[in-house]
Amino acid sequence: MTSAGPTAPSSKREEFEEEALVHLDALYGQGLRLTGGDEGRAEDLVQDTMLRAWRSWDTYETGTNCRAWLMTILRNIFINDFRRQKSRPDPVDFDDVEERPVWGQLKEEDPSGEFFDRIIDDEVVDAIQDLDDEFRVTLVLSDVDGLSYQEISEQLGIPEGTVKSRLYRARRRLQNELYEYARSMGYLRSEEDDD
């Protein structure tokens, strides 16, 4: 697949393959998380990321955390686009979001701790992808990428209080989605079952 070229570019290409391309699947996973499972957008994001990384490869210090460097590039590309789109009025009805804490239910219905044992990763990924854009992006930046409230606030251009509120609601909604899934699969004991 690689083209034979002069020594210098070939060396750059080999280095790029070894250091950067090995993270392609991780970048694609992040692209899917941020875009809500939009495969086309996620692929575009990864290609744009790789192209930008290739063009600025001389700024990358070999041996440092290449994955983190690439993830930052991808996140910046996504967020620039996201902020442009979200400059329009928000269509999400935030008051409509289910915020019931599920812990109160689970301590009664899940005495054997099936909740975490039975729910598979795919269900968590799907539930994250189903979140509204504002909730999903905030949750991914915090709970997967580990950014602080201040960092998310700066990245998304929203107040820290809004970050806190979106994160709270995103987590509650995610919990409720997974709780309903666990109930539908019979992993939890409902009150009716006790009758």
Binding site: Y28, E43, V124, D143
Partner: peptide
């Protein structure tokens, strides 16, 4: 959530495109 969601996704066609 972190352990479940932080995962890579294979996409051989994307690798070819890149």
């Amino acid at each position: 959530v972190r352990e479940s969601a932080d995962r890579a996704e294979e996409n051989p066609e994307l690798r070819e495109k890149v």
